[in-house]
């Protein structure tokens, strides 16, 4: 299996890439790690006529602190995230999630930008970025826009990216030093996409949940923020009744597809369990 024909470009700067994307029009696509795009091109699920490889653009790579935010370049790979002490210390949930994505070979190539821009509900980073309150930096000929992750996803493979725009970086507010976190992912085997997964970031105060956000992966056409579920546990000590209410509130917004990973009913059921486990695990880690 090889992809269909296309023209290949390797710009050296973001400005050059944006110029190319504008000139080439709708049939051009950015190429990051290629580990979602090339498989789709082999299957003819994607047939771009032009690929603009972002690999040669040094400014799109790297992790830096900017005030109370961590800014991650779009071309930073999952392997780079795992190798970063800064991420392990400041955003441990991003480290935990990266370890649960695919396998070593895929993590060397797959980028965080490609993972969030792809729009596949099975990708793990979108729900996590929504949970963390991250903002995406999008750049096109019209200038730079900042779009919250929570407003980026419109449907499976439909995002707020306008034709010709490139995602350049992701800004993540640093969570409180005493926060607890967990990404709980049920998968059939290592390297598989989630049957259901839940991200939780919370803080505790006097044994009760003070703040909480919950994200869901692969349980709908897009990643979801489970706001009602989070509200259901704020002010509680995560007793059984509150956990059950949170799971029920989360299940109420899920509409997973039935596929080889299970029926919709099964995936909703285990989705609720992932929410409960993530809440308990996060609370145990909170200081």
């Amino acid at each position: 299996m090889i992809p269909g024909q296309f023209q290949y470009y390797r710009p050296a700067t973001t400005a050059e890439a944006i110029g190319l994307m504008a000139k080439l029009g709708d049939d051009a696509r950015p190429l990051a790690g290629g580990h979602s795009l090339i498989p789709m091109m082999k299957l003819r699920l994607a047939t771009p006529e032009h690929l603009v490889d972002l690999h040669g653009i040094a400014s799109l790579k790297g992790i830096r602190r900017e005030g109370d935010r961590i800014v991650i370049g779009a071309m930073t790979t999952q392997h780079d995230l795992l190798a970063s002490d800064e991420i392990a210390k400041m955003l441990p949930i991003l480290h935990e999630t990266s370890l649960l994505i695919a396998d070593p070979q895929v993590r060397y190539m797959g980028t965080i930008g490609g993972n969030v821009a792809n729009g596949d509900p099975g990708n793990d980073m979108p729900a996590l970025m929504m949970t963390l309150g991250a903002t995406y930096h999008l750049e096109g000929q019209g200038g730079v826009r900042q779009v919250p992750a929570a407003e980026f996803y419109q449907g499976a493979y439909f995002t707020a990216l306008e034709p010709g725009e490139i995602l350049t970086a992701i800004a993540v507010p640093t969570p409180a030093a005493n926060h607890g976190y967990a990404y709980e992912k049920l998968k059939r085997k290592i390297g598989d996409y989630a049957t259901a997964a839940a991200a939780v970031v919370l803080t505790m105060s006097g044994g009760k949940v003070a703040t909480c956000s919950i994200g869901l992966t692969n349980l709908s056409e897009t990643a979801l923020l489970a706001d009602e579920a989070a509200k259901a546990v704020i002010g509680t000590s995560l007793d059984d009744a509150s956990l059950k209410r949170a799971a029920a509130a989360a299940e109420a917004i899920m509409s997973p597809a039935g596929d080889g990973r299970g029926s919709p009913e099964y995936r909703k059921y285990v989705g609720g369990i992932m929410v409960i486990r993530a809440l308990q695990h996060a609370a145990a880690r909170a200081k």
Binding site: Y8, R10, L31, H35, I38, H79, P104, Q105, V106, M109
Partner: peptide
């Protein structure tokens, strides 16, 4: 890096 060469374009390895 260990990579799966069935999912890398030869031009990416320039």
């Amino acid at each position: 890096m260990s990579v799966k060469s069935c999912t890398v374009l030869a031009v990416q390895a320039e």
